[in-house]
């Protein structure tokens, strides 16, 4: 059963369609990557999900309810939308105590989350003097304050150093392993490829892929066939519904298929195969292909 459900969500800002009939689900026990280039509509979608913006139409719910209707939002959902939502003259501890006071979370939890994100030593310092990485950690501390079952994080790796990125990945994985639901947005697939189980890829406000990372990786591999008549082989494969690309006069590249399929199709058409090889394209290229071609992929 999905925890986060976005259904036919549309958001229009004047003439600009920021989110266009977007639907996807996020499941518990998994880290779901919400991916797309800058301006694809990721942050707008998350803002609507978190009750900060109103949809033009459609809905975005958590546990079946709109955010504003949640009985105890900080204990149900932890969210990081941007890394600078602090008054510069408050300390990290004061910032968290404001949220804790408003929500009835005990103050001892403030120390616990500051410890968890590695800011215990800087807890009394004014946030105005914090680095971007420290602000990112403090944002996360705020999200974890109510020990929620759902985490929604917008570009959480921005500003983190390599050690911080590794730490964040571990944290997200352990969260999912505990059966919690994690939705993480990023404009870089490779940035989250080591962390996510599922992916929702967004381009121009629409979901162009909603699948598992394993499936996406599978799709990122190509089979190359060297033959005597590349054009003929390409047409045969195309007729079989396989995506192909002519590399040169003798080589055809087939995507999202196996070497067996290509070999058998060539044999059936009596086209000699001189060489057959499998190549793994990098994920980022696939990601760019996806968002540029806007081909729809579903699991």
């Amino acid at each position: 059963m999905s925890v986060i459900s976005v259904s036919h969500l549309t958001k229009r800002y004047g003439p600009v369609l920021a989110v266009d009939d977007l639907s996807f689900d996020v499941h518990p026990g998994k880290v779901t990557g919400f991916l797309g280039p800058n301006g694809a509509g990721k942050t707008t979608t998350l803002r609507i999900l978190l009750g900060l913006a109103a949809p033009t139409s459609g809905s975005a719910t958590i546990g079946g309810l709109e955010y504003r209707l949640l009985a105890d939002p900080v204990r149900q959902v932890g969210a990081v939308l941007d890394s600078s939502t602090f008054h510069p003259s408050r300390s990290a501890a004061q910032h968290l105590k404001v949220i804790a006071t408003a929500t009835g979370v005990p103050f001892r939890r403030v120390g616990e989350v500051l410890d968890l994100v590695g800011l215990a030593d800087a807890a009394g310092r004014r946030v105005g003097g914090y680095s971007l990485g420290m602000r990112q950690r403090l944002s996360l501390a705020g999200a974890l304050l109510g020990d929620p079952g759902v985490l929604v994080l917008d570009e959480p790796l921005n500003g983190l150093d390599p050690e911080g990125i590794r730490w964040m990945r571990g944290l997200l994985r352990s969260f999912a392993a505990e059966g919690r639901t994690v939705l993480v947005s990023s404009h870089l697939l490779t940035e989250v490829a080591q962390t996510v189980d599922d992916v929702v890829v967004l381009a121009k406000g629409r979901a162009i892929a909603e699948t598992t990372l394993a499936d996406l990786t599978e799709r990122s591999s190509v089979t190359r066939a060297r033959t005597t008549d590349a054009t003929l082989l390409a047409n045969v494969l195309l007729a079989a519904g396989i995506q192909v690309r002519l590399i040169d006069g003798s080589t055809v590249e087939a995507r999202s298929t196996s070497a067996d399929t290509v070999g058998l199709a060539a044999a059936a058409a009596n086209i000699p195969i001189l060489e057959l090889s499998r190549h793994d394209e990098d994920l980022e290229s696939l990601f760019f292909d996806l968002i540029n071609d806007r081909q729809e992929v579903t699991a």
């Binding site: 939002p73 949220i99 929500t103």
Partner: peptide, 12 residues
Amino acid sequence: HRTIVPTLLATP
């Protein structure tokens, strides 16, 4: 300072 975001996340 955009503290309105944590304010409204805590109390929608």
